[in-house]
């Protein structure tokens, strides 16, 4: 089937074209979308190339940093103020993938891809759509959430951020799972901890039961053991070529325990 490629100069034009057709897909770096195109996937009828410069910008806005959806992994790694995200971006694919893979595309890459998306969810990030509507990532990742053209990601840097990626091939290698956690401890007790598993469901998911076990507690051995035992509760891992759902459930507590011990 012939594919149509359309380039639009403004966010509003891209947003309109995206809303008008289900077969229209936004092009980020194309590391996921072009695989579908190469495989002649009939669900891709139109490729939209948003050319608005906002998509390539990184700006500080108060406490938050606004990252354009078209910013690449290589650009995140090179940017001084995004040091907290660099360890995550560095683990996405090999150098050739990081040259083009974007932060916006990572939000929509199917599991077990989406390591950066998981990190952003743990950091409590928000997105601004092409129409200018702001919403928390939690809403974008809700099941059956309407599809959206993301223009910008807003995220506040954190010193309490921890990340681990579990993969079978190093240094590259797709995730069995990755875990991102934001664990602020004012006065020694955890306040609003956020723990996100990527690869344990169709989208990055918060481990709500483990978060509840941590909330208000010191990060001691007993709390860590309790939270780890609840790691996979409410999550919905799937079988794929990397690992089975059963395996993922079995090892999730081990990897969460190690992350929490490292943070303590």
């Amino acid at each position: 089937m012939p594919i149509e490629v359309r380039t639009h100069a403004t966010l509003a034009e891209t947003a309109r074209a995206f809303a008008a057709s289900r077969g229209a897909h936004i092009l980020g770096g194309g590391t996921v979308l072009m695989r579908a195109v190469n495989a002649a996937d009939p669900s891709v009828a139109t490729i939209l190339r948003p050319a608005d410069p906002v998509l390539r910008q990184i700006r500080t806005e108060g406490r938050e940093i606004a990252i354009g959806a078209g910013v690449t992994m290589a650009e995140i790694i090179a940017h001084r103020e995004l040091g907290f995200l660099a360890p995550v971006a560095r683990l996405v694919g090999g150098p050739q993938v990081r040259t083009t893979a974007t932060i916006g595309g990572n939000l929509f890459a199917a599991a077990p891809y989406g390591d950066v998306a998981g990190a952003l969810l743990a950091l409590g990030a928000s997105v601004v759509t092409g129409e200018g509507r702001r919403m928390p990532l939690d809403d974008l990742f809700r099941p059956h959430a309407p599809r959206a053209f993301v223009a910008t990601i807003l995220v506040a840097p954190s010193r309490d951020f921890h990340f681990v990626k579990v993969s079978r091939v190093r240094p590259k290698g797709v995730s069995v799972m990755s875990i991102a956690a934001n664990l602020p401890r004012p006065g020694g007790r955890l306040q609003d901890p956020r723990i996100v598993f990527n690869g344990m469901g169709a989208r990055p998911m918060r481990a709500v039961a483990a978060e509840r076990a941590l909330s208000g507690q010191p990060l001691d051995a007993a709390t860590i053991a309790r939270a780890a035992s609840l790691a996979a509760e409410g999550l919905a891992p799937e079988d794929d070529a990397i690992a089975s759902a059963w395996y993922r459930r079995e090892v999730a507590p081990v990897h969460l325990r190690r992350l929490l011990e490292g943070a303590a």
């Binding site: 490629v5 072009m34 695989r35 195109v37 050739q96």
Partner: peptide
């Protein structure tokens, strides 16, 4: 592409 390594099979030619 402009000096950076890139996978040509996943690069939309017009970019």
């Amino acid at each position: 592409v402009d000096g950076a390594p890139q996978l040509s099979c996943l690069t939309l030619a017009e970019t």
